Amino acid sequence: MFTGIVQGVAIIEKVSPAPGLNTYAIRLPAEHSKGVTIGASVAINGACLTVTRQDADCLYFDAMQETLKLTTLGGVSEGDRVNFERAARIGDEIGGHLLSGHVHTTAVVTSILRPENNVTIEFEVPEAWARYLFAKGYIAINGASLTIGEVTSNRFNVHLIPETLRATTFGDIREGDAVNIEIDSQTQTIVDTLSRLGYDRPAPVR
């Protein structure tokens, strides 16, 4: 499990395509690469990957075709910056909300506003996932636990403070970029349960 509190930014050192998977060499900051064991879980842009090898500060991960299809990892290149979070341990503070590291879908950045001292980013998700979007609800974007601002149809926005921009890759984001989305599990359970009972959520306002 993960908390959605991004621990820092890592660098894609190498991408090695092979039949059925990609192998990634990702360099973490030195203070975050200590104590890693083979088989440990690390969220890379919100996708839970397993450490297969370590070379000093560089960790190696394999991503299967299903992961490449459902996430943005298939589009990363050497030198790209990614958010990372090592798996939570019992007793850790849950500063965000509990995440599984299982990406549900991707979203596209549709607009970026930069008022003084903060940034508002709007995203568009596939229609099928709009039913899980609620104003002030939780969502994970590239592994970061965030609060949804406004929702219109299958678009929603988030408001980011300078610290979030500093500690994550959101400061680099551009219109048209794709991001990984993990829907809040409790929200998904409630919506799906009510749907099975016949209480479907009304279609989002367009």
Rank of each mutant, 00 (worst) to 15 (best):
E31R: 13
V42W: 12
A25P: 05
A18Q: 09
D62R: 10
V158Q: 08
N117I: 05
G79M: 14
H102Y: 13
A167G: 10
A47N: 03
I190G: 10
Y199F: 15
F2Y: 07
R114W: 04
A43M: 12
T52D: 02
D184G: 07
A203I: 01
T50P: 11
F61I: 03
L194E: 11
L73V: 01
D92S: 12
T120R: 08
A25H: 02
E127K: 06
I148R: 06
D192G: 00
T169A: 06
Y24W: 10
I112R: 11
W129Y: 09
R53H: 14
A30F: 00
N117Y: 08
V51S: 09
S145C: 09
V179F: 04
D177K: 06
P17L: 11
F134R: 00
Q7D: 04
R201F: 06
S16W: 02
A178P: 09
R201D: 02
A18I: 11
L194S: 08
H97M: 09
T110G: 05
F170K: 12
A25S: 10
N83W: 14
K136C: 00
A167Q: 15
I12W: 13
S111A: 12
V15R: 05
L133S: 06
I148T: 03
L73A: 11
E93Y: 07
N157W: 05
T37I: 08
L160T: 01
R27D: 13
I11Q: 13
G39C: 04
T72H: 04
A178L: 15
N142M: 05
R174M: 12
L99G: 15
I139M: 02
T71C: 07
G137Y: 00
G96H: 12
S100R: 03
T168G: 05
E182Y: 12
L59C: 08
N118F: 09
I38L: 15
